[in-house]
């Protein structure tokens, strides 16, 4: 089984978000980058298939050379091979088209991408990729089993879950629940050393226009002071929620 996992290089979840150049650009100064958490859940499941079923795992990103440390990390976690498409990921449509080119040249049985990245939250890449390749697609995936050439995937729906099955190839939008938090792999020294020897191919992008452009950013307005209510006076809290905030 050949698995492709799409990786996005995103600011760490604790990052304070600031903008520069008249709020037109994200301020990367001092920002730590991580593997997009949704992608990491997907990668961890892919590594499980590698260890239990002998699957081959390729990781792919669209980004500049600054993404390479997290691609090395994916290799240290256990991926066999990495590909970086050397381009600035302008929007989900652009990225999905780049990934689709790679998919057309390789026979991946399973393609996993996070259901969304935690920076631009587009939630488009796995779905657009599925549309472009005309592959079956399950997003918000919280369980994935593969037997022979049949995938059984659970999708989180509003208020429950749905269990779906499909022939391979399939595209999965990964999210929390696909693997347990405790199963996430922290690379050990051996993995880190091996990662240095593993291939990380850099590929030129295809020429494609993005369909959306970010013109500017805005930060939420600063919040007013919290109104404290004494703990022995919950009547006051109910009064405030009813008469002032008008939410109950």
């Amino acid at each position: 089984m050949n698995i492709l996992v799409c990786i996005s290089n995103v600011p760490d979840t604790t990052t304070k978000i600031n903008f520069i150049n008249n709020d037109s650009e994200f301020d990367t100064n001092g920002v730590q980058y991580i593997i997009n958490p949704n992608d990491e859940f997907g990668l961890t499941r892919a590594i499980w298939f590698q260890q239990k079923k002998g699957a081959k795992v390729t990781v792919l990103t669209v980004g500049e050379s600054s993404c390479e440390p997290i691609m090395r990390k994916c290799l240290a976690i256990g991926a066999d091979k990495a590909i970086r498409i050397d381009a600035i990921p302008t929007d989900g449509f652009f990225v999905a088209n780049q990934v689709s080119e790679i998919c057309k040249k390789n026979n991946y049985d399973l393609i996993i991408a996070g259901r969304e990245s935690i920076d631009y939250n587009g939630g488009m890449v796995p779905g657009i990729l599925a549309g472009l390749l005309n592959y079956n697609f399950v997003t918000n995936c919280i369980q994935l089993e593969i037997d022979q050439n049949i995938a059984v995937a659970s999708r989180e729906i509003d208020g429950g879950k749905e269990i779906l099955s499909s022939k391979l190839p399939i595209i999965i939008g990964a999210q929390k629940g696909l693997v347990e938090e405790k199963d996430l792999i922290i690379p050990n020294m051996r993995g880190i050393m091996q990662a240095r020897q593993k291939p990380l191919d850099v590929i030129r992008p295809i020429n494609i226009q993005a369909k959306s452009i970010i013109k500017s950013f805005e930060k939420p307005k600063p919040k007013g002071e919290v109104k404290l209510v004494p703990s022995d006076n919950v009547d006051e809290l109910i009064n405030l929620l009813h008469n002032e905030a008008k939410v109950i």
Binding site: G92, F93, G122, G123, G127, I128, N140, R155, E156, I157
Partner: peptide
């Protein structure tokens, strides 16, 4: 922004060759 709409939106975007902006 329901789970179902987020699921179908990118597929629809490909069918119509359209942009998609969530959120």
């Amino acid at each position: 922004s329901s789970a179902d709409c987020r699921y179908l939106a990118p597929l629809l975007a490909v069918e119509l060759d359209s942009s998609y902006s969530p959120n």
